[in-house]
Design a protein around this nucleic acid. Structure first.
Ligand SMILES: [Zn+2]
Ligand SMILES: [Zn+2]
Ligand SMILES: [Zn+2]
Ligand SMILES: [Zn+2]
Lengths: 126, 126
DNA sequence: AATTTAATGCAACTAAGTTGCGTTTGATGT
DNA sequence: ACATCAAACGCAACTTAGTTGCATTAAATT
């Protein structure tokens, strides 16, 4: 079950996710809120917010779980087939805008696809 | 630097990778070779074999690192833009054959793309 | 204000992967 | 066949992401 109560920590996490494209790991969130938030709470809230369709998650190239805001998801329907980008230089991760459709082999029943691009972001290109 | 000596453990790992499409985690490899191989050795060999272009790696949806054999890679040139598939039912992971080209935004300098499809494999579809 | 239960903090834990170091072993030369 | 040397190995200890159990705190509702 998702978030039931508007606690201070929920508010603070939502503030941390104000950039609609930026993806954050639990550790990044903890750093960003430093004073007095427990890591267990952050992990649990991220789970609940994902249940509610407020954020979605994916695994980065570093095998760390990243979260970003959802835009057209609810607790009943999740739909985010957009790719993500991870900068190898500044380590920033974010959602990309374009949708991707892949034609997988017919014998596979594909439920979800995760696409992660790695490279240098516009700020780190030079 | 890569593998320099044809040790027994190297041979055994290569045997474990005999299926050209199957992807394995370090743990899976350890289970498959059970008697008397140390996990540190497996992790180190996988690193070295990847350096040599013998295997490539990617992060599964479970945030575990998977390895599979390379087909047209050397220690100087690595090229594998093919997608991978992870079965949510039997947990098998493997390389898919088709290549994917994505048109990423121009301001991003993309170096690599990882595409992971999740779903039911042909054996688990019913 | 009293009650109820979601949410929190803490400590202890699991699991993937890494590091340092002393020992073993494969390759090379004599 | 033997000596030598570094690659490869095993082990223990460590790091880090994420989880779990439980007692305490604090929203929401009456
Ligand atoms: Zn960058
Ligand atoms: Zn996204
Ligand atoms: Zn399957
Ligand atoms: Zn592959």
């Amino acid at each position: 079950m998702g978030v039931q109560r508007r606690t201070k920590t929920v508010e603070r996490i939502l503030v941390a996710f104000r950039d609609p494209k930026e993806a954050l790991s639990a550790k990044m969130l903890l750093c960003r809120m430093d004073e007095g938030v427990n890591k267990t709470t952050v992990y649990r809230l991220l789970d609940r917010l994902e249940d509610d369709g407020v954020v979605h998650s994916f695994s980065g190239d570093d095998s760390i779980k990243y979260y970003a805001r959802c835009h057209s998801c609810s607790d009943t329907l999740h739909l985010h087939s957009h790719p993500h980008f991870q900068c190898v230089s500044c380590d920033k991760v974010r959602c990309l805008d374009f949708e991707v459709t892949l034609d997988a082999p017919e014998n596979l029943q594909v439920m979800e696809s995760q696409i992660l691009l790695k490279g240098h972001c516009e700020l780190c290109s030079n």
